[in-house]
Computed example of a mutant assay.
Amino acid sequence: MPYAIPSTRRWNAPPCSPLWGTTLYTLEEATNCVLAQLYRGFLLPHIPISRRKRERNEEIRNRYAAGENVPELARLYSISEQRIHQILRGKRT
């Protein structure tokens, strides 16, 4: 089960046992434990998305749903194809 970031936006450690015992971790669990140890107590950045970008992203989703392809959208909006994919997958509304 992935470790969720608390609403305080502070990175806190998930419950982790020593890695050298009889406990076995999945790769995701082990990664979460390591990241939690590295970033314990750090404040996470919270950068709100502007209204203009939110509207642009919605327009990109609508145009994609209407049949436009990713390279065409990337060229039209002067952003990378990777960013178009992120917008379509819902990474940062």
Rank of each mutant, 00 (worst) to 15 (best):
Y77H: 12
T26W: 00
T31E: 12
G67S: 09
A36R: 01
L27K: 10
R63E: 08
R9T: 08
E55G: 04
V34P: 02
A30R: 13
S7A: 13
R51M: 01
L76E: 15
N69G: 11
S17M: 09
G67C: 10
P18L: 10
G21L: 08
R75F: 05
A36Q: 02
E59D: 09
A74E: 02
T31C: 08
F42V: 10
Q37V: 07
G67M: 09
E29D: 15
N57M: 03
L35D: 04
N32H: 15
A74S: 07
E68C: 03
T31Q: 10
R9S: 13
R51L: 03
I60N: 01
R61N: 11
W11R: 05
E28L: 09
L73K: 01
E68K: 06
R56I: 01
T23R: 12
L38M: 15
T22Q: 06
L35N: 07
P14D: 03
A30D: 07
E59N: 11
P18K: 10
K53T: 05
I49T: 13
H46A: 10
R61V: 13
L73F: 03
E55N: 07
A13D: 02
R40I: 12
E55L: 15
N62E: 14
Y39G: 00
R40N: 13
G21P: 01
E72C: 03
S80T: 15
S7I: 07
E81T: 07
S17Y: 05
P45Q: 11
R9D: 13
T23Y: 04
R9M: 15
G41D: 14
A30L: 15
P45G: 07
Y77G: 01
A30V: 06
Y64C: 00
K53C: 04
H46L: 11
P14M: 04
I49L: 14
Y39V: 01
L44D: 06
P6S: 12
